[in-house]
Amino acid sequence: MARRIEAIWSFSACTSGSAVILPDGRCDIIVRNHASTPDEVTPIITGPATQPYRIDYDTGDQWFGIRLRPEHGAALWQDDLGNAPDSVLRGPEALDRLPSLAALHGAALTLDALAQIIPAQTWPDVEPRLTRAIDILHASGGRLRIDALAQFVSCTARHLNRLFRRNIGLSAKTYAQLIQFHRTLKLITNGNVPIIAAAFEGGYSDHAHMARTFRRFGGFTPSGIPTDLSLPDIPPK
């Protein structure tokens, strides 16, 4: 259990607005409703995201969510994981994917219930070397080449890449690029590092390389980072 769920969260909007959600390669299960009509719920299942998306909300909108650890995307998507990246299932589609979600509405919609929503028998085994590879990749800020990462966990790059695709749904390289993007973004937003210095420390060959990645994953330029970003800011446990 410890290494399956990365975050359990809820959010109630006290104003209307919108937010940009940045991709972090994780799969989420989210149930959305409104404080005044708690029985009218919309279940949402996301695949591993590689693109930013914007959500709009009104006062009183509520979300309850769990974010799976990256290597457990297959628990949710099973054999469809290959088609899951950047897909979002809402309502009936989400219930088809995970029928147990139908029970979560009104008083039964709790974070505890959500944490138990994936039936125990559907969590596939994850090779420990994949978990270790993910930890090392995070520690390296996504800067390790995949063949070097494979050496750390004593397997071939080909096998490691297969584990990434089978369990996370993304290639090892894409996952590494997401980590590198988030770290470099934080160097600028949290570390107040100048953009050129952030590109260097982040491991980008030049400013243009960094700018391409920021556009791809964030939809913005390094000098035009929006102020209403929702940063997935939870390190692996």
Binding site: A139, G141, G142, R183, K186, N190, P235
Partner: peptide, 11 residues
């Protein structure tokens, strides 16, 4: 090693 990522370091 998790602390490295929390501190914004790449190691």
């Amino acid at each position: 090693t998790e602390a490295a990522e929390m501190n914004g370091l790449a190691i």
